[in-house]
């Protein structure tokens, strides 16, 4: 196999492992919109990075973390009407990013690569960054697992029982923001939430405990990655969307398997 396929597989593997463990909580907390707002804002980070000529990943991470904290603030101030405001933030950032990209002199930008991913162009340094982030994300998630699960079940009950709800929420949101920055290469900003949501939703069918569900989400994510890349190489289709299509097909197939009782 060619070197670029191995690089793509390695980077994709790190991303689906992260999205598996992060995605289940997005489902449990009904925060799918959160993934959309964050990933859409990533494009603004790209534009800023290209404009200043500085490290692109760093800019995307900075913008995403900033947006995540802004969303956390909005969430704790329900008077602001969170859904509407989040939608405005996300789409504005996406539009602003796109507009800004066209104004860049001397830079020819492949917008499609950012919108739908360009996993076959992954570099060695991308792999190093993605894997170090994956190790960190999974490590931190293991560390905050109990309090995060507890607040996902009932935030006020968790708080009365001593969980630092704000801090645990903030850590989780920052992890997603960081993941978005590296996952952008794999599926692009428009389909990124699918990678968080679909494997997790498919995993529900088999899982009897929260931990099993996260584990199965990772496994289904890996299967979707392999199948999607296979399709993409065979039929010469765009890789990111092919991975998402594979995940959706897996989700539908899983629905025909009889569910566990819990």
């Amino acid at each position: 196999m060619d070197d670029f396929i191995w690089r793509a597989l390695l980077a994709g593997l790190a991303v689906v492992l992260m999205s598996g463990v992060l995605g289940v909580f997005l489902l449990w907390r009904r925060m799918a919109y959160f993934g959309d707002t964050l990933s859409h804002s990533a494009l603004l980070g790209v534009a800023l990075g290209l404009m200043t000529g500085m490290n692109l990943n760093l800019w995307v991470m900075a913008v995403c973390v900033l947006v995540a904290l802004l969303m956390l603030y909005v969430q704790h101030n329900p008077a602001l009407g969170s859904d509407t405001l989040l939608s405005i933030i996300g789409h504005s950032a996406l539009a602003l990013g796109t507009v800004a990209l066209t104004f860049l002199p001397n830079v020819r930008v492949d917008l499609m690569a950012y919108l739908f991913g360009d996993i076959l162009a992954v570099t060695h340094s991308d792999i190093a960054l993605t894997w170090s982030l994956a190790v960190m994300v999974i490590g931190v998630m293991a560390w905050i697992w109990r309090p995060l699960l507890s607040l996902s079940v009932h935030a006020e009950l968790a708080q009365v029982e001593g969980v630092k709800v704000w801090w645990v929420s903030a850590v989780y949101m920052v992890l997603i923001a960081l993941m978005v920055a590296v996952a952008m290469k794999v599926v692009g900003v428009l389909l990124l939430t699918a990678l968080l949501i679909i494997p997790a939703a498919a995993a529900r069918r088999f899982a009897r405990t929260p931990e099993q569900m996260a584990l199965f989400a990772m496994v289904i994510g890996v299967l979707a990655l392999l199948a999607g890349m296979g399709i993409s190489l065979q039929l010469d289709t765009p890789t990111g969307p092919s991975i998402v299509v594979a995940a959706s097909v897996l989700f539908i197939l899983v629905q025909f398997i009889s569910p566990r009782s819990t």
Partner: peptide, 25 residues
């Protein structure tokens, strides 16, 4: 303090047994 909140709804997508729920924290 023991607290029984007014509204309790657990998302269907979260697999959790009663045993696990009681000892969650």
């Amino acid at each position: 303090i023991g607290y029984v909140p007014q509204k309790f709804h657990l998302d269907r997508l979260l697999p959790l047994t009663v045993e696990r729920f009681i000892g969650l924290n």
